[in-house]
């Protein structure tokens, strides 16, 4: 079981080269296959995830959640997806059509791209980049543009406010997000994901870097635009923020992308702070799934408990608290490493 996926990939490459294909081309085809597999898994996973969130939020609120379609209401998301697909696709006449239509696509493409570097098991990265962690951060920061495009393209004051909020929020929270991961990088001495996982074979970084973990958790929630930081959407104030004018599948794409981001960030958190795919008895790819889902449940619990923060509080929290704390953490980590090295570790 452990090496099932890896062996399959090797077999595919061997078969392709056996057909007389140049090794470079075979690798390219493998990459495409892996990519498609990731997209399929992500989308299937999200149907489960949306069901899970509705179920968990139901339990939190002492409700039952969806329970009509299929066992425990598991097919509810699929039914919703079919409904959204068959809905009329409305493009309001005063919108900036090009931007309005491309925004959801840009968003979903960016969020799927995040999965390239996440190790989903022992040797199961699509590409093991030497700058993997940095890749994740910088690609993740691109989703600002998608939200801004949605906000501007909708030509609606609520949407524009939502777009503006998302820019302010995401740019501010990128900084503590990157800084909090820097502590881990300093200990590992590498940006490569496989190195980070390997460095945690003895002890998880959540123990070594608790401050970094907390700052990362908070700023990741803000990056994901999830409650209590769901400024761009903010149903109660901005009606639906940047998504106000979207209908049918375009709207669904936004949600798909949001959940894709959510899973990616949770998986990264599991990789960077909770030992990645490492774990006893079970196959490695099962471990990362378990860890990711546990983290996701914490995200759910937080979203359904807290009220939304005010925009200016949100900004000052980032600039006046999170950034100094994450900088101090870097200093602390550096000093710690220096001391330990002097002691002869």
């Amino acid at each position: 079981m452990e090496h099932f996926f890896v062996n399959t990939a090797h077999a595919l490459v061997a078969w392709l080269t056996g057909l007389g294909l140049a090794p470079g081309w075979a690798d390219l085809i493998l990459l495409v296959v892996q990519w498609i597999a990731v997209i399929i898994i992500v989308i299937l996973n999200i149907t489960v995830l949306i069901w899970l969130e509705r179920k968990v939020s139901g339990f939190i609120q002492q409700r039952l959640g969806p329970n009509r379609l299929g066992p425990f209401g598991m097919f509810q998301t699929i039914a919703d997806a079919i409904k959204l697909l068959t809905k009329e696709d409305i493009v309001p006449s005063q919108t900036d059509r090009m931007i309005f239509k491309t925004a959801p696509m840009v968003f979903i493409i960016i969020s799927v791209m995040l999965y390239v570097v996440i190790p989903m098991g022992d040797g199961m990265e699509i590409v093991d980049l030497n700058v993997g962690l940095f890749y994740f951060i910088s690609i993740g920061s691109l989703s600002t543009i998608a939200l801004l495009m949605a906000g501007w393209g909708s030509n609606n004051k609520w949407s524009l406010l939502g777009g503006m909020r998302s820019v302010a929020q995401m740019i501010s929270y990128e900084i503590p997000l990157a800084f909090s991961l820097l502590g881990v990088v300093m200990i590992t001495g590498s940006l490569r994901m496989s190195d980070i996982v390997a460095a945690q074979s003895n002890i998880w970084f959540v123990v070594l870097q608790p401050i970094a973990f907390i700052t990362y958790f908070i700023s990741a929630t803000a990056e994901l635009n999830r409650g209590p930081f769901d400024m761009p959407e903010a149903e109660q104030e901005l009606t639906s923020g940047a998504y106000t004018e979207y209908t049918g599948m375009r709207w669904a794409l936004f949600f798909l992308a949001e959940y894709t981001n959510l899973v990616a960030v949770s998986a990264l958190m599991a990789t960077v702070f909770f030992g990645g795919w490492q774990g006893p008895w079970l196959p490695s790819w099962l471990w990362i799934i378990i860890k990711t889902y546990l983290i996701l449940n914490v995200f759910f619990l937080i979203k359904w408990t807290f009220p939304r923060i005010r925009m200016d509080h949100l900004m000052s929290f980032s600039w006046k608290f999170l950034i100094p704390v994450s900088l101090a953490n870097i200093l602390l980590t550096g000093a710690g490493i220096e001391v330990l090295m002097r002691m002869g570790w």
Binding site: Q61, Q62, Q236, W304
Partner: peptide, 16 residues
Amino acid sequence: LAIDLGATTGFTYCMR
């Protein structure tokens, strides 16, 4: 008030 501030769960407990 809870739901206007975004705390959905507070609302459901109050309704209960």
